[in-house]
Amino acid sequence: MNPRRRKLMLSVTFIVLGMGVATALALKAFQQNLLYFYSPVQVAAGEAPTTRPFRIGGLVVAGSVKRDVESLAVRFVLTDTLREITVDYEGILPDLFREGQGIVANGRLRPDGTFEASEVLAKHDENYMPPEVADALTAAGVQLPYRAKNTAP
């Protein structure tokens, strides 16, 4: 290999590695800002902002969804299996919202430790299977993630 090519090859390696290191450091510095949502554990540890809105993510605890009969208000408990947080929301929930489902709620923390959501998004998982397979797995006693009865009226 002639010296010119070697030099060019070094430059190419330098560009790719240099960008890699620079980006890794930048992302490391902004780690907190890149989180799309906080988990209940982080909220309990006081890592979430108290003065401005933020997003919180977790699983809807089975049996915790309470709907108001006369309005769209709904109250449910969100968990990351370690800590729980009560969420209040008024509005239309996405179709995939159900007990046991992962969701992301945007809103603010009230002084009493409950969360007032202005938006609720469903987070679906990476599993895809036909309904019959899901039924067979449930029948065999396999605990499917987010597999719970739809609580929508």
């Binding site: 890149l34 799309y36 906080y38 987070k123 679906h124 990476e126 599993n127 895809y128 299977m129």
Partner: peptide, 24 residues
């Protein structure tokens, strides 16, 4: 995998078996 995202994790391009039924 690195951050909490609304987008779910990988279904196929991971070391584990794919989390999608063979017919799909």
């Amino acid at each position: 995998e690195w951050w909490h995202t609304l987008h779910q994790g990988p279904t196929i391009t991971k070391l584990d078996a794919p989390s999608i039924h063979i017919s799909m």
